[in-house]
Design a protein around this nucleic acid. Structure first.
Lengths: 154, 154
DNA sequence: GCTGAAAGATTGGATGG
DNA sequence: CCATCCAATCTTTCAGC
C-alpha cells in the first residue's frame, strides 16, 4: 500500500486519539501540517483508514454483559444468516469461520434475560442448527488496535 | 448514567465519524454548539466515552488473516496468561469466559505462518493446556458499535 | 513530495438566562 | 441545562522549493 514510517506513526497517534488536530500531530512528529494533512487524506482515500469511531464504555450505558457465540448452520444458508445476525443491534462482530462452528458472533447485552432472548432468536432463524454461548466474565483487552510494533515488522 | 436522547444521538453521530466538529453535530441535531460541547465533555469525564479511535483496514496493511482462538488453561494461572496474551501486538480482544474454553482471544496475522507461530507461542506459555483455532474466512461485521436502537430501548 | 503562510472556520471556556 | 460570544487555535489550500 506504499506506506512508510511516517504513515504508521500518524496512524499510531490517531489510534490513541482520533480527535487530535493535524497541527498537534505535526508538532508531535516534527513535520509540516500540510504533510500530515495530505498523508491522512491519502490514507482515507485509499481505504487504509476506514473511519474514525468513538469507543464507548458499554458497561456504563447498560450493556455490561458480553458473549461469544458459536453457531452451527446449514451450508447454503450461512451467508444469509450472517447478514441477518450482523443487522441485530446488539451484535458487534460476525465472523464466518472454519472449525467447530460455522459462524462466531460477539454481542453485548443488558443482562442474562436479554442474552437468552437473543439466543432464542438465533435458534429461531431458519438454518441455524445449534449455538454455543461463552459468557464473558472479564475483559482483558477489547479494541481494534494493532501496535505499530507489529505493523512495522519487515 | 443519566443519559438522554440527545446524548445518544450525539454518540450515534460520533460512532459514524468521530472527527465531526461540534458545530457539524450541532447543525445536524438542531441544538447549540455549546450544548454539544458540554454533552461530549461530560460523557468523556464520566467515562461513557472511553476515547476516539481510528478504524484501520487491516487487510490493506497486510494483516488480512483473523482468527478466533479458544484457550484452555490451568485455573490459578488464567489471569496472568490473559495479561500476557493481551500484550501481544497482534491481539485485539482477550475475554475470560465460561464454557468450553477459559479464554477466547481474537487476533490478526499476516499469513498462516504468522498465525502458526502465534499459536505455538500460546502453547508454550506456562499453564496453557490446549488451544482451538477458528480461522476467519469472511467478516460480516467487525466494529464496536451498538446501534442507537438498542441503547434507547426502555 | 514537503513546507509554511494565510483565509476562513472551529474550538474552549466563560457568561448570563 | 441552554445560547451567545470571542480570542486562540485549527483546517485546508497553495505557491515555492
Amino acid at each position: 500500500m506504499g506506506m512508510d514510517e511516517l504513515d504508521l506513526r500518524i496512524l499510531q497517534l490517531l489510534q490513541k486519539n482520533a480527535r487530535l488536530s493535524y497541527r498537534e500531530i505535526a508538532r508531535e512528529l516534527n513535520v509540516a501540517v500540510g504533510t500530515v494533512y495530505n498523508r491522512i487524506k491519502k490514507m482515507e482515500e485509499n481505504g487504509v483508514i476506514r473511519g474514525f469511531c468513538v469507543a464507548i464504555d458499554y458497561e456504563k450505558v447498560g450493556f455490561g454483559l458480553t458473549a461469544v457465540i458459536g453457531i452451527k448452520a446449514k451450508g447454503r444458508e450461512i451467508m444469509r444468516i450472517e447478514r441477518e445476525i450482523a443487522k441485530n443491534p446488539r451484535v458487534m462482530q460476525v465472523y464466518d469461520v472454519t472449525g467447530e462452528y460455522d459462524i462466531i458472533a460477539i454481542a453485548k447485552f443488558r443482562d442474562r434475560a436479554d442474552m437468552n432472548r437473543f439466543v432464542k432468536w438465533l435458534l429461531s432463524l431458519e438454518g441455524v442448527e445449534k449455538t454455543n454461548t461463552s459468557v464473558v466474565m472479564d475483559i482483558a483487552k477489547e479494541d481494534f488496535t494493532i501496535s505499530l510494533e507489529a505493523l512495522s515488522e519487515k
